[in-house]
């Protein structure tokens, strides 16, 4: 059986070798369309993960409370009043959210796992409620039925920092019909691309159509 290609009907998992191959092809296409995915090596290890960061304007509201008022303003000792060459162009009312997406491989479940974290530009992570409030309402109903219901909080296995992750225990379940359909139509698909299209909206991640149309499937 050729690696990465889904030809074994009985299993809709992704073995590690295929994961790497799928990632490689995925990253190749990402390099072409420059949407920011890259491979991150883990120091002192053979392993690694696919990552991307993105800045997304967020809804206002609770996020404004992130700005702590701690009376530190009095601490200046800096006098820059004469710099006329500076413009302040930042739209102050806009809150930006820094999303980090990491695609890891789960040996236990033999599927990819999406780890993510969102934070304001001062590095303060968003709570899950805040993440939810930034999900487009059109997606919410569907996400509640999955995979939002698999969201959990866990330490990043390589970084040791708290991340949210979409628990892989249901991945095979929702991937199976998709893979089966592709199989019936004798169409080769890239597992990572298909999977990411399902889980991406949870975290504000859109997978451009060109991944499906132009990305060569592994064979």
């Amino acid at each position: 059986m050729s690696s990465g290609e889904v030809s074994n009907i009985s299993s809709y998992c992704l073995d590690e070798k295929s994961f790497h191959l799928c990632c490689k092809l995925f990253l190749q296409h990402s390099g072409v369309i420059r949407d920011g995915w890259s491979w991150a090596d883990v120091k002192g290890s053979e392993e690694g993960y696919v990552k991307k960061t993105a800045i997304i304007p967020a809804k206002l509201g609770s996020l404004l409370n992130h700005k702590a008022d701690d009376g530190m303003n009095a601490v200046t000792g800096v006098d820059e009043c004469d710099d006329e060459a500076v413009g302040d162009y930042i739209v102050q009312s806009q809150v930006l959210v820094h999303y980090e997406y990491h695609i890891l491989y789960s040996i236990g479940h033999q599927v990819p796992i999406l780890y993510f974290r969102a934070s304001t530009l001062d590095g303060q992570p968003l709570s899950l409620d805040e993440v939810w409030s930034n999900i487009h309402p059109n997606y919410r109903q569907r996400l509640l039925q999955g995979p939002w219901d698999t969201l959990t909080q866990q330490e990043h296995p390589f970084l040791g920092q708290p991340f949210f992750m979409l628990h892989p225990c249901h991945t095979e379940e929702f991937m199976k019909p998709l893979l089966q359909m592709a199989d019936d139509k004798k169409r080769k698909i890239n597992y990572i691309t298909t999977w990411l299209s399902v889980v991406g909206p949870v975290v504000g991640l859109d997978v451009p159509l060109s991944y499906h149309t132009e990305l060569p499937a592994p064979d």
Partner: peptide, 17 residues
């Protein structure tokens, strides 16, 4: 006169960790 947009600092959560 030419005016410049200053940098805004942006820190990822991981930086503080």
């Amino acid at each position: 006169k030419l005016q410049f947009a200053p940098f805004s600092s942006a820190l990822e959560a991981g930086f503080w960790h």
